[in-house]
Amino acid sequence: MGDVLGVAVLGAGHMGADHLRRLDQVVSGARVAAVADPDADRAKEAVAGLAGVTVHTETEAALDAPGVEAVLIASPGPAHEEALRAALARGLPVLCEKPMVPESAGALRVVEAEARLGRRLAQVGFMRRYDPEYGRLKELLDSGRLGRTLMLHCVHRNVSSPPDFTSAMLIDSSVAHEIDAARWLLAQELTAVTVVRPRPSALAPEGLLDPQFVLFETEAGALVDVEVFVNCGFGYQVRCEAVCEAGSARIGEERSVLVTAGGEARAQVPRDYLVRFAQAYDREVQAWVDATRRGRVTGPSAWDGYAAAAVAEAGVRSLEGGGRVAVELAPRPALYAGPGA
């Protein structure tokens, strides 16, 4: 790699535009070399003011553009498999936003393609692993000071959902983050899922099953529950409490200034994930750039992306059919470490 890593960014929407800004203004050791989006005008607008960036409407044209040494995928999930396999075929290191591939069969094809190469090139954008609070919780649980972890209690709330959001997406888009966080924090695979549906909120669009309560079982007998509520109306909240044999630890309390005046106390609540996890995204992309320039891949793997897709699919089956659904994973290739790596 050169002194400055040339990155092709695929997707210039909400997430892609934020990564373009991050690569240009926040991250050191990298530059945007190319951008691709089916909407050429949106792509041009997203890179306005950035020098030396070529704009494309096709993925492969961006991957083959001059100066491209690595790829950041921020396009919609259904486009990820094709982009990942094209990047792998060219030997390009890639950071892919979650979901790596929405369907587990497609995610497994990416795993198998990378395993045939015999080396890791793909990292999946589970940015919570880079959040300082999650990092401290991981260190605490790994230390064993609180004994074995028995339960994780998780909350995932959004102000509102996009117009095209479906009931299944509460599991495979929103709770996908808790799936990876639980696997990572506990260093255990998730083996079964049960989804319970309370009555929908009046704030939820017609037909959207929101909120939902999701219960995961792990291979070592721990339980993980998630309240997911994507139309809560008041803010973006992500919390996690680990209950262990000798104590508990909780993260995700609001960290803003608490103002007490006029007989009441108030604190601001983040409005979306780009605010709450801004530092995590910055740290994630910087770590990816640093590792890529050293010829390494250190973050969540393609196997982690596949496992998250398989668990989410089991969750959607439980949501749609009711009851407990077992998670079935393919044999893990030797290339990949376990869920806590």
Rank of each mutant, 00 (worst) to 15 (best):
Arg296Ala: 15
Arg296Leu: 15
Gln286His: 11
Thr298Cys: 13
Ala310Gln: 00
Ala310Tyr: 02
Glu320Phe: 04
Ala308Trp: 00
Glu320Trp: 01
Val289Ser: 04
Val316Thr: 09
Arg294Met: 14
Val285His: 04
Gly299Tyr: 07
Thr292Trp: 08
Val297Tyr: 03
Arg294His: 13
Arg317Tyr: 01
Ala309Arg: 00
Thr292Phe: 07
Gly305Ser: 06
Gly315Ala: 08
Arg293His: 10
Tyr306Ser: 03
Ala312Val: 01
Glu320Thr: 09
Tyr281Gly: 12
Ala310Lys: 02
Arg317Ile: 06
Tyr281Arg: 13
Gly299Met: 11
Val289Asn: 02
Val316Arg: 01
Ser318Pro: 01
Thr292Tyr: 05
Ala291Gln: 08
Arg317Lys: 13
Glu320Pro: 02
Asp282Ser: 14
Val297Ser: 14
Arg283Phe: 12
Ala307Thr: 13
Arg283Ala: 15
Ser318Arg: 00
Asp282Arg: 12
Gln286Pro: 08
Gln286Lys: 05
Trp303Phe: 09
Arg317Gly: 01
Arg317Leu: 13
Gly321His: 09
Gly321Phe: 06
Ala310Met: 05
Gly321Trp: 02
Gly295Asp: 12
Val311Ile: 14
Gln286Thr: 10
Gln286Asp: 13
Ala314Gln: 04
Ala310Phe: 03
Trp303Asn: 05
Arg294Thr: 06
Gly295Leu: 12
Ala309Ile: 03
Arg317Glu: 14
Val285Asp: 04
Arg317Trp: 03
Asp304Leu: 05
Ala291Thr: 10
Ala302Gln: 05
Arg293Asn: 09
Trp288Ser: 11
Gly299Lys: 00
Gly321Arg: 09
Gly315Asn: 00
Gly315Lys: 03
Tyr281Asn: 14
Ser301Val: 07
Arg293Cys: 10
Val285Ser: 08
Gly315Leu: 08
Val297Trp: 00
Tyr306Trp: 07
Val311Arg: 00
Glu313Cys: 03
Trp303His: 06
Ala307His: 02
Val285Gly: 01
Ala312Gly: 12
Val285Lys: 02
Val285Phe: 11
Asp290Arg: 08
Ser301Cys: 07
Arg296Lys: 14
